[in-house]
Nucleic acid binder design. Structure first.
Length: 647
DNA sequence: GAAGAGAGCGCC
DNA sequence: AAAGGGCGCTCTCTTC
């Protein structure tokens, strides 16, 4: 008789449930691989809500600690399981990875710092995150803008209060301590951990404090964020961008150090040369306004520089007046050389292992854009861009959105004509064809218009930027060097092309002023800092924020995708330049990465604004350095200075 | 002498 | 009455 086949049972390790009571009673100190295993297995079997995490440095021991606070909701409230992991034993860290692979939200008050720490130890970042400090930034975005200091000038009390508020905000509002106080979360602000060879209970308490506070902040913050209509933006855009942003900063940019040192010396030589020339003319200090006033007064040209009560020698002024006297051009050149020499990119101290890691500040602006510092890589003079080079075997590429904010303005304010013009190609050319129909021949292509009638295109461009930034006829007149009444009628006729845009630009900022904030397509709000009738400045940003802020949002969405999609090509985002991404990719993948970037950027726009046909320009013609193919813009510029000898 | 405000340069 | 949105950075001038 045949025996019935028995089902095959695979051998499995016997996993017993771990008693949560044991882990919730004290802080577990983990410093060996079996401790790590216990921790991971415990995390994998608990129905967790979220996990707080943070790092600590033991000052004298030079040892790093990773604190973990797992949170679980039960009938009687929050249960928190605390672990402090000593990272001295690198051999067991690999076993920790499954913890961060859990599909649970990881919470920290400064995610970037903790991610750097994980990456330093070879661990991968969790996929789902929440940065409690970013939440606070978003919640208060705009309220403490420096612009409010000026608006309360007549009232000393409110000015003092505003200043105090500003300082308090900068130092305290975003801190973990300040945040915990606002949410009623218990927190003690220990500065550092005194070192002992072995951690005692008190030190464990200190070590866990930040992770536990972040864990306790999460649910109240999510609640408040939802109440303010910010939750969608935070979870879909801002928190993923916290990881992308950290990746960009971690990667940094490679510097051509030899070229940097050459550049520094050449610029210094040019600086002394121009200074000598100007001092022979009587200007010893080009930054001293009195000297400039005296000098131009002697030439009989001072009246040209008149502005309001005094005299201005600013950039635009000098540019427009440079044909009046060669000194003006020399002044401009010297100023630019001085500002080039000031750039922190030239400081050797910032370079570590050949690369610089600029500080990339998420939500550094009240519109939602990024800022950067040390060095300010986003604001660096284009003449210095070739100092940034790729690693050997890699190339640098850049993909730019074309006139993206204009498309977004058209879509947000719902102007069919502007949308149509944006979708045809070069939006300024399309405008010029329409606006100057009598002056121009029929059926000019974009290129012909750019080449043969640059002035018509320029007028359209200034009018358009005037819309984005809320320019008045006074400002437009100064920009185009025309009379104010001409500018006024020009602007009126320009708006006739876009009636819907004109209407909504009148309405929406005022409605936003009443509710107290302007918003992006994703719900990111820029708040007013005062109530009552809006000032002109407020009306300007109330109309600009939906455009600039939405562009920044879509940019982040695209960046978040790219950062993930780049991994299979071993490519990296290195500079997020407001409307273009600069990346470093292996040379054999450069083209495909550039095309991927272009596609993702354009699709991200269409996802939010299906009516737009956005375009992006690929620049990979010279991957040996950053700057869209121009290897030596600085050399060319300096050569021109030499040609135009002053004396 | 330190700190703040403003001007002026660069970037989008 | 001011007069273009958002920044970082350095310098000068003023103020305490």
């Amino acid at each position: 008789m045949l025996e019935k086949p028995r089902p095959v049972v695979l051998a499995r390790p016997l996993l017993l449930p771990k008693d949560p009571k044991y882990f919730s009673e004290s802080i577990q100190y983990v410093n060996n691989s079996s401790g790590i295993e216990r921790l991971v297995e415990f995390a994998q079997q608990r129905p967790l809500s979220h996990i707080g995490f943070d790092t600590d440095l033991m000052v004298q021991g030079h040892s790093q600690l990773l604190s973990i606070s797992m949170v679980e909701l039960q009938g009687d409230g929050l249960h928190i399981y605390n672990f402090v992991i000593d990272l001295r034993g690198k051999e067991y860290l690999g076993n920790l990875q499954p913890l961060f692979d859990l599909s649970v939200c990881f919470v920290s008050h400064n995610l970037k710092r903790v991610l750097f720490f994980l990456w330093e130890y070879g661990l991968s970042a969790p996929a789902i995150v929440w940065d409690t400090s970013i939440n606070e930034k978003v919640l208060h975005l705009g309220k403490n803008n420096i612009g409010y200091l000026r608006s309360s000038k007549e009232d000393l009390c409110s000015q003092i209060r505003a200043k105090a508020d500003k300082k308090a905000t900068d130092q305290f509002q975003l801190s973990l301590l300040g945040t915990c106080q606002r949410y009623g979360v218990p927190y003690r602000d220990y500065q550092c951990i005194a070192s002992l060879s072995k951690l005692n209970q008190f030190q464990l308490d200190i070590a866990i404090e930040d992770a536990r506070a972040a864990a306790r902040l999460y649910l109240p913050q999510v609640n408040i964020a939802a109440q303010h209509g910010l939750l969608h933006h935070l979870t879909t855009v801002e928190m993923p961008w916290a990881i992308t942003n950290a990746k960009i900063q971690w990667k940094g940019v490679k510097i051509d150090c030899a070229k940097r040192d050459d550049t520094f010396q050449i610029l210094q030589a040019y600086q002394s040369m121009l200074e000598d020339q100007l001092s022979q003319l009587g200007i010893n200090d080009h930054r001293n306004n009195d000297q400039l006033i005296t000098y131009f007064n002697n030439l009989g040209l001072l009246h040209l520089f008149k502005k309001n009560d005094g005299y201005s020698f600013d950039h635009d002024q000098l540019k427009q007046l440079q044909s009046h006297h060669p000194t003006i051009k020399a002044l401009r050149n010297l100023r630019r050389i001085s500002s080039l020499l000031d750039d922190k990119i030239l400081m050797p101290e910032l370079v570590k292992n050949g690369r610089i890691q600029p500080n990339h500040i998420q939500l550094g602006t009240d519109t939602g854009r990024q800022t950067s510092e040390y060095p300010n890589i986003l604001g660096m003079d284009a003449l210095l861009r070739p100092l940034i080079i790729p690693e050997v075997g890699y190339g640098i590429g850049e993909v730019d959105w074309s006139q993206n904010e204009i498309g977004i303005a058209a879509a947000i304010y719902g102007d069919e004509t502007l949308i149509k013009m944006f979708n045809t190609g070069d939006v300024y050319s399309a405008m010029a064809r329409h606006f100057f129909v009598k002056e121009l021949p029929e059926d000019l292509t974009d290129q012909e218009l750019k080449d043969k009638y640059p002035n018509y295109r320029k007028i359209m461009k200034e009018c358009t930027l005037g819309i984005l930034y809320g320019m008045t006829p006074y400002g437009l007149a100064a920009k185009l060097n025309i009379k104010e009444w001409v500018a006024k009628s020009l602007q009126a006729r320009f708006f006739e092309m876009f009636p819907q845009l004109q209407l909504q630009l009148q309405r929406l900022p005022k409605l936003s002023a009443i509710r107290g904030y302007a918003t992006t397509i994703s719900g990111l709000r820029r708040n007013r800092g005062i109530i009552g009738p809006p000032t002109n400045w407020e009306l300007n940003w109330l109309s600009n924020h939906p455009i600039q802020g939405s562009a920044a949002v879509i940019f982040k969405v695209a960046g978040n995708r790219l950062a993930k999609l780049y991994e299979r090509y071993d490519a990296h985002l290195i500079i997020p330049l407001h409307d273009s991404f600069v990346f470093e990719a292996p040379l054999n993948h450069l083209k495909v990465v550039a095309e991927l970037t272009e596609r993702v950027m354009c699709e991200a726009v269409q996802e939010y604004f299906p009516m737009l046909k956005p375009k992006a320009e690929i620049n990979i013609s010279n991957p040996d350095c950053w700057n869209k193919g121009d290897l030596d813009p600085l050399g060319k510029w300096l050569a021109k200075i030499l040609e135009s000898k002053l004396i």
